[in-house]
Computed example of a mutant assay.
Amino acid sequence: MRGMSLPEATLLEMVFPDHTNHLGTLFGGQALAWMDKAAFIVASRHARRIVVTARSEEVSFRVPVRKGQLVELVARIVEVGRSSMHVEVEMTAEDPLSGDRRVCTSGRFVMVALDSNGMPTQVPSLPAGD
């Protein structure tokens, strides 16, 4: 039986022309939006509450993502505070014809859970390791 792992969410997106700049590469803002979406999903599922983005930090754009590539985003909660969740997101670009995959962008997001009055509220701790 597997040990408990960190809460995780995976999203797949396709880079269409309207996601790109004049060079045919993914807009940085679109990459951030997809990364924030992945962070939102994993934090919402973990907290089972409304969550909002409090901060994005340490975002690194390593290699460009080209029009026509697939993008896989993996978001993992790596730390939990009282009402906050620190989520690391890694974005991998894949050429759909060759299968070549490269990590292109990574970042860290802080998500905060809110109660019905819009105030920060407690979230569950991370599962204990093996």
Rank of each mutant, 00 (worst) to 15 (best):
S56W: 06
L114K: 11
R49Y: 00
D36Q: 07
P7R: 01
A31S: 15
A75R: 04
A54E: 04
A54K: 05
G29M: 05
E57P: 02
F109A: 09
R76M: 03
V59C: 04
Q30R: 13
T53H: 09
A31V: 12
I41H: 07
R48L: 03
R108Q: 12
P127A: 06
M91C: 14
R101S: 09
T92Q: 02
E13V: 01
Q69S: 02
S84V: 03
V80R: 13
G29Y: 07
G29N: 08
I77T: 05
R82W: 10
E13Y: 06
A93P: 02
A39Q: 03
T105E: 11
A33T: 14
R45L: 01
S125W: 00
T105Q: 10
R48F: 00
P7H: 08
V15K: 09
S84W: 09
A39R: 06
V112H: 05
L12E: 12
A33G: 09
E88Q: 15
A33N: 13
I41V: 15
L97T: 10
V59Y: 04
A93N: 05
L12A: 08
S83Q: 08
P124F: 09
A93M: 08
V89C: 04
P7T: 06
V65D: 06
S116H: 11
P96T: 08
A31Q: 05
S60I: 14
L6R: 12
R102E: 09
T105S: 13
V78G: 04
S44P: 00
V123Y: 06
T53F: 07
G24V: 02
D100P: 00
G68Y: 09
R66H: 15
G129V: 03
F109D: 06
E58R: 15
G118E: 10
M91R: 02
F109K: 07
D36E: 14
V110A: 02
G29C: 08
